[in-house]
Design a protein around this nucleic acid. Structure first.
Length: 439
RNA sequence: GCGGCCGUAGCUCAGUUGGUUAGAGCACCUGGUUGUGGUCCAGGGGGUCGGGGGUUCAAAUCCCCUCGGUCGCCCCA
């Protein structure tokens, strides 16, 4: 027995009086249908990444708190779920993103890994922010990265993987836009305008916020940074017109996107800078064109990060796609499969639903037949209800989306019914059912 | 973390100026006794009206707090 003072404190009455237990704010329960939809998304992510030549990895769901503060400063702590073991002195945090873990993993083995490193992962992440539409406290994310290749070819290859997934979900290039920015290209324009390097951060922040600001406020902010309205217009024009020709890397990226066949999905837009400080080159954001939802995915190049975590200098580019906004978009567009189609896609559809006609010998044959089918690798189900009304049981068979129903007629034979076509095959021997099903 | 809006069965909602045992559809369950599928018929379970406190003879209905959702700000990896 622990001493009195080490017992758990009284639970704080947090207002959940009548219903003491519910999922924490911003976290979700996944009932079978929800789970099937989630699985559909995960499967599509995995298949796409594998098809594009990426290997799957994962890391811990919690890390040392420092891993996140090193990169983003102390301010980030408010947005993390961090904790300390009772009596311990080490601070941990649930992972809010994958990139630091990835950089750590690569840094640890960088010298022994053949380049380029093409890795992906699917996992859950946690952020202690206020939940909103498209933004929860626990969510799933698909992370895809290419390390050890600094070329625009790698950027394009990564973007192609992202597009491949979107396409696989049934989305098209008129429903989705990948807007691609480029920090290095923007910086070269900054240099042309003789902006002090120490101000780049503020300028990036201003460009990032531009779509949200009133024109007057935008001009105002620019003045604060030392630009009058005329100069600001020149800068805007330079950014707007910065196409392929103004920057070598941007230009080769554009041609690589063309070669990879994804240019119909992309738009070069140098006002895309993204919030993260660690991006160094290309950055991109994926939105649905309706403009109502948050970003579906985002990413970019982060050539210094592995080094920052103690590894050898390693160029890297990656993106993440979250399940929350993606699900909303798929629902909005009617692209989330349901019923038999959904179960088919995740390989969870029952092959066969067995029904006894209620006679004693049929009843006796039911369980052994089910067992045999399952041993043969088939997905076999039967009712747990008491009724032997064939009509009701067929309804049950059909509502669980089984491909076939079997009505056991006696100790030796059954009727095999295709639930999609309605075709029936009578007098099928029970002991030949496995062969019948596999054939 | 800050502000606006919302909260009645699993889901979509109704509930009259606060007034008797809180309703419908769908879903779910059980029957319709030898048989064929999201139709029929008949029954049934399920809500302390998000929770707590207050005002009142009386509250789902008014007030406060709280929890949750949603929208905006911050942030967005």
């Amino acid at each position: 027995m622990p001493p009195e003072d080490q017992k758990f404190p009284e639970p704080t009455p947090s207002g959940r009086h009548g219903k003491p237990f519910q999922a924490p704010r911003g976290a979700r329960d996944f009932y079978p249908e929800d789970m099937a939809r989630r699985q559909y998304i995960f499967d599509a992510w995995r298949k796409t990444a594998l098809r594009h030549g990426f290997d799957e990895i994962d890391g811990p769901t919690f890390e040392h708190l420092d891993l996140y503060t090193v990169k983003s400063g102390e301010g980030i702590v408010n947005e993390l779920f961090s904790f300390r073991r009772a009596g311990g002195e080490t601070d941990f945090a649930l992972r809010p993103e994958f990139t630091p873990t990835l950089a750590r993993m690569v840094a640890a083995k960088a010298n022994s890994l053949p380049k380029p490193i093409k890795w992906f992962s699917v996992g859950n992440f946690f952020r202690a922010e206020r939940p909103q539409r498209g933004r929860l406290r626990e969510f799933s994310q698909w992370n895809v990265d290419i390390l050890g290749d600094e070329s625009a070819e790698a950027d394009a290859e990564l973007i192609a993987c992202c597009v491949g997934a979107l396409e696989g979900f049934g989305l098209s290039s008129d429903q989705i836009r990948l807007r691609i920015g480029h920090r290095a290209a923007v910086e070269s324009i900054f240099r042309r305008f003789e902006i002090a390097e120490s101000n780049y951060g503020e300028w990036f922040a201003l460009l990032d916020r531009k779509p949200k600001l009133e024109q007057a406020e935008y001009v105002n902010q620019a003045q604060r940074l030392g630009f009058d309205e005329k100069r600001m217009k020149e800068l805007d024009a330079a950014l707007d017109n910065a196409t392929a020709t103004t920057d070598d890397d941007l230009s080769s990226l554009a041609s690589q996107l063309e070669r990879t066949g994804v240019s119909a999905w992309t738009t070069i837009d140098l006002s895309i800078v993204r919030g993260l400080a660690y991006y160094t080159g290309m950055v991109f954001e994926v939105h649905e064109t309706g403009g109502k939802e948050r970003a579906i995915a985002g990413g970019g190049r982060y050539d210094n990060l592995v080094e920052l975590f103690g590894g050898p200098p390693t160029p890297a580019v990656g993106f993440a796609m979250g399940d929350v906004v993606l699900s909303l978009v798929l629902q909005d567009r009617g692209l989330m499969p349901e019923g038999a189609e959904l179960l088919d896609k995740i390989d969870a559809r029952p092959d066969i639903f067995l029904i006894s006609n209620g006679q004693e010998e049929s009843e006796a044959a039911l369980k052994p037949t089910v067992a045999e089918l399952r041993r043969a690798g088939l997905h076999a189900r039967h009712t747990h209800r008491t009724t032997r009304n064939v009509g009701k049981l067929l309804k049950e068979a059909s509502s669980c989306h089984a491909r076939y129903a079997v009505i056991i007629e006696n100790a030796a034979t059954c009727t095999l019914k295709n639930l999609e076509t309605g075709e029936e095959k009578k007098d099928v021997p029970l002991d030949g059912l496995v062969v019948e099903m596999q054939g």
